[in-house]
Amino acid sequence: MTFASIDALEQALREASYLPDRGLATALYLASTLEKPLLLEGEAGVGKTEAAKALARAQGARLIRLQCYEGLDVAHAVYEWNYSRQLLHIRAAQEGTVSEAELFGPEFLIRRPLLEAIESSEPVVLLIDEIDRADDEFEAFLLEVLSDFQITIPEVGTIVAERRPAVVLTSNRTRELHDALKRRCLFHWIGHPTLEREIEIVRLRVPGVPERLAAQAAAFVQGLRRLELAKPPGVAETIDWTQALAALGREELSAEVVEQTLGSVLKYHEDFESVRDRALVDLVQEARGAR
């Protein structure tokens, strides 16, 4: 399903519980209009993976996710033969009666995410998550798949996509990606949201949260991002934290409750310590003053 305009896509994502800013909405819209993969980069926790999931929900498409890791190869990303079944099959048949064509038929093929996405006849969003974790060889292979949307299996032949899946790649920039791969993709950098948007996101994702608590939590996290931290918290942390605060039945922030729950926002011990010892009281004051 394609969208008539950026506004229509924005609306659909909103209904799928995701609040994109205009930039991200434009990126997703262009990706589907131009039928090009979209590369999303940004700090951890700004909602890169979530964007792909929301797109799938908004389109009523199936999400197929390929989580990348070092050493990821064709057998885990594209297809593999079911070897034990093949061996059993050879055993079970009379000697000499198993032909090669029989042995490499579809019933022995194990489909991994990429093949599944290419073969699918229903609409699909293919999420290739954390592509920077895979190694160079895999990136080169991916290049082939993403330019022609086809996969060649020596024993079977070439499988061409009936309908091109919407492809979203995410990267945390642990290393630079190949220029060739980048050239195939539209590129969007997701930054941290503005205060207003972050409040909106929190209220959407933590249903029933007191309005004041959502506003104060968002303001507090925005304050944290201005400090020099080893790992500034993302929106994901704001959501987790607000959930924790709401579960504790809080209506607003206090220095005491922030100190107890800060661990769900700051994941590095040094950050935790320096905020607790120095900035915490001021930030709470500031956040409480915001609304």
């Binding site: 205009r22 930039g23 434009t26 990126a27 262009l30 220029d179 050239r183 993709c185 539209l186 590129f187």
Partner: peptide
């Protein structure tokens, strides 16, 4: 946004 997403990577 359109120009930025298509021209910059």
């Amino acid at each position: 946004w359109t120009l930025r997403q298509t021209l910059v990577s």
